[in-house]
Design a protein around this nucleic acid. Structure first.
Lengths: 183, 183
DNA sequence: GTATAATATTATATAAGTATAATATAAAAC
DNA sequence: GTTTTATATTATACTTATATAATATTATAC
C-alpha cells in the first residue's frame, strides 16, 4: 500500500491533479518507489472509492479540463495510521535484478563481467550527478508546499540516496579492481 | 522475470525439487530478491510450460514423493541470454516503504521519529549480524554445488550486502544524532 | 497550416507478487 | 500415543505493478 500512502502524503501538502501528482511523485518519491503514470491514476480512483480522497472537475479554457483531488479526514487518519505503524517495512531486503545477474556471473567470462560492472559504474556516476540536484529540488518544493519541518525529513531520504549511490560506486570500483587483478 | 531467471540459475547448478529450490533460494538470492514459496512452485510450472525445465516424480518410501526439476538446453540458452542482456536492470531505484515513511515523517513529532529510527537501527544491527554468516553459507554451497569461479561472484553480492547494511547503519546513526541535536 | 510539446487522462492486457492456509506423509521427540 | 518437526506441494483470492498505447485539448514554434 506504499504507493497509496505516498500519494496520500503528497495530497496532504495540498490539492493536486493526477497530472501534478505524477510529476511531484517523480520529483520526490521516485528514488525509493516507482510507479507508472497509469497506475497513479488508477490508485487515485481506488483511493477516492475508499473515501480517502474527494475530487472535482476543474473546467479550463486554455488547457484540457482536469480532476482536482483533495485528501479527506479519513485520508489524513489513514496516513497517520500508516506512519505510526511500526510494521515490517524496515526490512533490509533489496530487490535488484542486477545483483541477481552478478550472482550468476560465474557462467560468463571475466571480460563480459568487467564490461557489465563498468557499465554499472557509469550508472553509479550518473546517479550521483542526479543526486546533486535533490537539494535544489527540496528547496524548490519547500517554498511552495511546505515548511522546514517537512524538508528536514526529505533531506534525510536524500542523504540516504547519496550514501547509497556512493556505496554502490565504491562496491563497483572494488569489484572491478579485484576482477582485473584476478585476470 | 528475475525470479524465473534466479530459479534457472540455481537449477543450472544441478537438479532440484521445488522444496530444495525454495531453501536454496532463501539461502542465497533472498537478500536481493524475495519470493513466496507458493510463487516459486508456480513459476516452476510456468517454466516447464515454457520448455526451460523438465520434471519427473521421484517416488520415496520414507518421505512424500517429490518432483525433480532439470534445466533444459532451452533453459540454459534463456539463462545465458538474460545474463548477457545489458538491460535496464542496473537502475538505482530502491523500493522502500520505510524511506517513504521517513519522507513524510514531518507529520509526526520528533520523539516518534526517533523511536522509528532507533528501531530501524536495531534492524541494521541484526542484518549486519546475519551478514556475518554469508561467508560460511558460501563455503558450504561451494563444496556441494559449484566451483571457485561461481563462488567469487556470490562473494561480490555478499560484499554488496555487507556494504549496504553498513551504509544503512551509518545513515541511521547520523539521522538519530541530528534529530537529537535539533531537540 | 502543420508539426511538436505540454497538459491531462484512460484503456487494456498481462505479469508478478502477497498473504494465508490447506493438504499430505512419515519420522522423531516427549 | 500425541504433538511437533521436516518434508513436499497445492489452492485461492487478491493486490500491485508493468508495458504500452490510445485519446483529447490547446499553445507554441517553425
Amino acid at each position: 500500500m506504499a504507493l497509496k500512502h505516498g500519494l496520500l502524503g503528497l495530497l496532504n501538502y495540498g490539492q493536486m491533479t493526477g497530472y501534478e501528482l505524477n510529476r511531484a511523485f517523480k520529483d520526490s518519491l521516485n528514488f525509493f518507489w516507482q510507479a507508472q503514470t497509469s497506475q497513479i491514476y488508477r490508485e487515485l480512483k481506488a483511493m477516492e472509492k475508499l473515501g480517502w480522497l474527494t475530487s472535482e472537475i476543474v473546467v479550463q479554457r486554455d488547457k484540457p479540463n482536469k480532476r482536482l483531488y483533495s485528501i479527506t479526514g479519513a485520508g489524513r487518519a489513514e496516513l497517520q495510521g500508516w506512519l505510526n505503524k511500526e510494521g515490517n517495512d524496515s526490512k533490509f531486503e533489496i530487490r535488484s535484478a542486477f545483483l541477481m545477474r552478478v550472482f550468476f556471473s560465474g557462467e560468463r567470462n571475466i571480460d563480459e563481467n568487467l564490461t557489465m560492472l563498468k557499465h554499472y559504474r557509469t550508472k553509479c556516476l550518473d546517479a550521483a550527478a542526479a543526486m546533486e540536484n535533490t537539494d535544489l529540488s527540496i528547496e524548490r518544493y519547500r517554498s511552495v508546499v511546505s515548511t522546514d519541518r517537512q524538508a528536514f525529513y526529505w533531506g534525510l531520504t536524500a542523504n540516504f540516496g547519496k550514501a547509497y549511490v556512493k556505496m554502490c560506486l565504491d562496491w563497483a570500483d572494488n569489484a572491478i579492481q579485484t576482477l582485473e587483478e584476478s585476470r
